[in-house]
């Protein structure tokens, strides 16, 4: 790994994170927003694994596993909520869900 730099992975993670942020902000479909959140979580995982390799510690890998488990739980509950929204309003456009807007 003499040839790989920590910053390569950190910058890749930062780019992926920002693409995910753009998706969360710009998408109207709730399922696509959940997909963008997956991009953000993957960016975090790249950072965790890169720092784990950098310090020679296994903690990075273990935390990445926890993040993957939490992501699975989040997608399950998130898609159930999206399904409920669809069942009630026949649409998953996020602009239409504005009852709690002040």
């Amino acid at each position: 790994m003499d040839d790989l730099f920590l910053n390569q992975f950190l910058l890749l993670g930062a780019m992926l994170f920002c693409i995910g942020v753009y998706g969360v902000l710009a998408r109207r479909n709730a399922v696509l927003v959940l997909m963008s959140i997956e991009l953000i979580l993957n960016a975090v995982n790249i950072n965790l694994i890169a720092f784990g390799a950098f310090w020679g510690s296994i903690a990075g890998s273990v935390f990445a596993l926890f993040v993957i488990a939490i992501a699975a739980a989040e997608v399950g509950v998130g898609l159930a909520i999206v399904l409920l929204i669809y069942r009630n309003r026949r649409s998953v456009a996020l602009d239409d869900v504005a009852e709690m807007k002040g």
């Binding site: 950190l10 390799a53 950098f54």
Partner: peptide, 14 residues
Amino acid sequence: LVDQFHWTATPMPA
């Protein structure tokens, strides 16, 4: 990131 970590090689050879 560029300011803080420069281009330090990951010290653990795989």
